[in-house]
Structures are given as structure tokens and as C-alpha cells.
Design a protein around this nucleic acid. Structure first.
Lengths: 144, 144
DNA sequence: ATGCTCATGAGAACCATTCTCGCACAGCGT
DNA sequence: ACGCTGTGCGAGAATGGTTCTCATGAGCAT
């Protein structure tokens, strides 16, 4: 699910996860990148920079980080999952369709809108998923 | 991608598609159902009711209907795609996490919000994807 | 240092979706 | 009604992202 859970779990700060070379490398890599990257991409990048990590490990680590609220996930149209380091507070993303650059946006109005819409129809435990896509200024300029 | 494209293609009314038993059956089934159903589900339902249709055909037909704007697609968290008959105008969905029932919601404020957020950051061709999840009144009542 | 776990990794398994390719049939003109 | 033609169909294989298995290896508390 993407960065949008109004009712995210309490997010225990003590995660009980072990600090391994692989997870550190993955986290470091994610810190350097902006934009959503697929697990496969991240795996390839780690190998390139000489940090041999198993693909399964990448998936497991990413999953764990998502559970701990350290990452945001976004499913692309073709079903591939993209991961991105993000601030822990609730927010949404503005994603460039062309270069993948993302901007975090937090806007109370949408939050209120989602809650209201849910309430109006008798829905409880309302969460929402909001992503905005577009072509960023740089990519627009780059188009011949 | 789900029902949320501000800039959907012109949607040619003359689709040039042939009317076959399989496609009619699929469309009829979708008309009876509310809520998002996976291609696999739809395929199984068709077989159950005695309309033998190939799985590949279901996928092809669904894809075609989506291209023609007759269906909405929604990717669940586990990557499976859900399909649903929908009104042709732009709208979003309020989905029950428990029973899958959906309500279409159209609210101009969000549209404006998305456009504004994109513009503020210099993004062009702004589209957005918005889904609201919750537990509907019936399911809340059903919880022992 | 020791031991109890949890994490890792290679490969297989899984599963939704797409492709292949030969055959059937809808649509159209006559 | 008849035949042509290209689109749609279907079974199974292929694809590709993600998850599972299980034996080995490495944190971390004591």
C-alpha cells in the first residue's frame, strides 16, 4: 500500500531487527536515491556497487522496513512494487512520470476530505491512498 | 491504474470490437456484481455459471474494456488487479476492506487540489489516483 | 566466548498475467 | 444465403515479479 494510511499501526520504535551488513547497505542506498525504485533495481544497484546481497534478502528487508514505517511502497500500473525512503509522518507523493523524481506533499484538506467521504457513507477505519502523477519541469524542458 | 485519470484519452465511441458470446457474458457478469473482482475470480464465476471462457480471453476482454473506458482497474496491495464496471465520468472509489463493496464518489475539491499541488511544483499533465478504504457499516455490524 | 535466534542466500516454487499459434466465427460485401 | 477476411478464441507454454525452503552464517544478550 502506498503512503497514505491514516490509521497506521503504532509503529514500535524498538523494532527488534538485527543490524546486518545487507540491511545497512540497502538503507544507505535508499538514502542516496530519490524516487521510487523497484526491488529488482535496488538489488542490481547493490551488486554493482560491490555489496553482494541475495534477491530474497532485498525483498525481506524491504518488507520489514515497510512494516516498520521506514519506507513507502507504490504499485506501478504493471504490478511492480516501488520503494522509497520517506519521512515518518503521513504524506502523499507527487511523482514525475518521466524521471521518477518525487516530492512529498502533506495537505490537511485531503485528509479531511477522505475522512468526510468515508463518514458520509458509514465507513469506519477510513484510510486513503493518494498519489499525484505528472511530468516535472525538468522533463518538460528536456522534451525536444 | 485506477479510476482517476484527469487526462483520459478521448475514448472513441466506435471501438471496432466484435460482439462475441464470451465478451457479452463477461459484461453481463460485471453488471451484476458490485465491487472489484480479480480476473481469476471472474473467470471462475463464468465457468461456474456454465459459460466456458478461456482465461486468456478474460484477460484480453478486460484489457480491451479498460482501454475503452468501460471498466475501472484497481491494483490491490498484493499486486492482483481488480476490475469493476463503472460510470464513464471521472470519479474515485470508497472501498470496503472487508466485503469489497464500493461506492463511487466524485468530488470537485480533490480534483482541484491535485491540479493545484501539481502546478505548485511545476508539474505538467497532472493526473491523480485516489482511493479511500474503510469498513462499511454492514461489516462493522457483522463483527461479532 | 557461548548459545540462542534471527538473517542470509541459492534456487525452486508460486501465481498473476501475457504470449503463441492454429482454429473458429463475426461482420461485411455481394 | 455465401464466402472472405481478419479479429477473437483457447490451451498450454512462457514470463517475470515475489515468496518460500532450508541449510548455513552472523547479531546480540549473557
Amino acid at each position: 500500500m502506498s503512503g497514505a494510511d491514516t490509521g497506521r499501526a503504532p509503529a514500535p520504535e524498538v523494532t527488534g531487527r538485527r543490524t546486518t551488513r545487507q540491511r545497512s547497505a540497502l538503507l544507505a542506498l535508499l538514502d542516496e536515491l530519490d524516487g521510487f525504485r523497484s526491488a529488482q533495481d535496488l538489488h542490481a544497484l547493490l551488486r554493482e556497487r560491490g555489496d553482494p546481497v541475495g534477491l530474497a534478502t532485498v525483498y525481506r528487508a524491504l518488507q520489514a522496513m515497510v512494516d516498520d514505517g521506514q519506507l513507502d511502497v507504490l504499485r506501478s500500473a504493471d504490478g511492480e512494487a516501488g520503494y522509497r525512503r520517506c519521512s515518518p509522518s503521513h504524506h502523499h507523493h507527487l511523482v514525475c512520470r518521466s524521471c521518477g523524481r518525487t516530492v512529498e506533499v502533506a495537505d490537511p484538506p485531503v485528509e479531511r476530505w477522505a475522512a468526510r467521504v468515508g463518514a458520509e457513507h458509514g465507513f469506519a477505519d477510513v484510510q486513503h491512498q493518494v498519489e499525484v502523477f505528472g511530468t516535472c519541469a525538468a522533463c518538460v524542458a528536456a522534451r525536444s
